[in-house]
């Protein structure tokens, strides 16, 4: 049990240390780590994103708490959550203490010049990988290319595609709130998967 607690602490410390650009950018890293440890399946990690959107707190922290509870109960959740917050705690208190004009450091600015576009690439990849796991009825690995193109159309989950189209229009064109978007797609899921 103590080994699990330590593993949760270390893994989520690592995730916390590399949580740059907040929220969505960290989805790929969190999914990689959680699935690699066998704590949850890829599909289950998508559920956490939805739950995160409907409850208080950012995704990285919610994911830590959720995985911690699932694997090691409330103590597990405590270790995972402390782990994900600890890097920020150390770095931010150091910055607050020395109060250097931190954001004016040129090296940091240069690094961010490369990191900001990388965050876009990360978010795009998480959209792609989640879309593939949702729109196609295939086991989700991490390879993009489908082995057999002829079977692709047969495997398309048309209900999911339809819900996505409605949701993306509601979101981009009518700018509905993320919580409403989740509720809307949930209701559509109940209706479409019942027929």
């Amino acid at each position: 049990m103590y080994k699990l607690y330590l593993e949760l602490l270390v893994t989520f410390f690592k995730i916390g240390l590399f949580t740059i650009g907040g929220g969505y950018a960290m989805i790929p890293l969190i999914q990689q780590e959680i699935v690699r440890h066998g704590w949850l399946t890829f599909k289950e990690t998508i559920d956490i994103i939805a739950i995160s959107e409907m409850t208080p707190g950012p995704f990285a922290i919610n994911a830590a708490t959720f995985v911690g509870v699932k694997t090691g109960g409330i103590p597990g959740a405590t270790f995972a959550t402390v782990g994900v917050v600890l890097p920020s705690f150390i770095i931010v208190t150091l910055v607050a203490k020395y109060s250097a004009r931190f954001k004016d450091q040129p090296l940091l600015q240069y690094a961010l010049y490369g990191l900001r576009p990388a965050v876009i690439g990360l978010i795009a990849s998480s959209a792609f990988l989640i879309a593939r796991a949702t729109f196609f009825m295939t086991p989700s690995g991490s390879v993009c290319i489908f082995a057999d193109i002829r079977n692709v159309l047969k495997m398309v989950n048309w209900r999911a595609v339809l819900i996505f189209v409605v949701a993306i229009i509601a979101s981009l064109k009518y700018k509905i709130h993320p919580i409403l978007l989740i509720v809307l797609s949930g209701v559509l899921g109940v209706i479409l998967y019942s027929v």
């Binding site: 650009g21 929220g23 969505y24 989805i27 599909k43 998508i46 559920d47 994103i49 939805a50 959107e53 900001r116 576009p117 965050v119 876009i120 978010i123 795009a124 998480s126 959209a127 989640i130 879309a131 796991a133 949702t134 729109f135 209900r159 999911a160 595609v161 819900i163 996505f164 949701a167 993306i168 509601a170 979101s171 981009l172 993320p178 978007l181 989740i182 809307l184 797609s185 949930g186 209701v187 559509l188 899921g189 109940v190 479409l192 998967y193 019942s194």
Partner: peptide, 27 residues
Amino acid sequence: ARAFEGINAGVVALIITALFQLIKPSI
């Protein structure tokens, strides 16, 4: 379970929306 099947598709829309909003300030 059905609601969450639908929500999974909604999550994709959510991430793409965030992606579009972040492109301009990031790239």
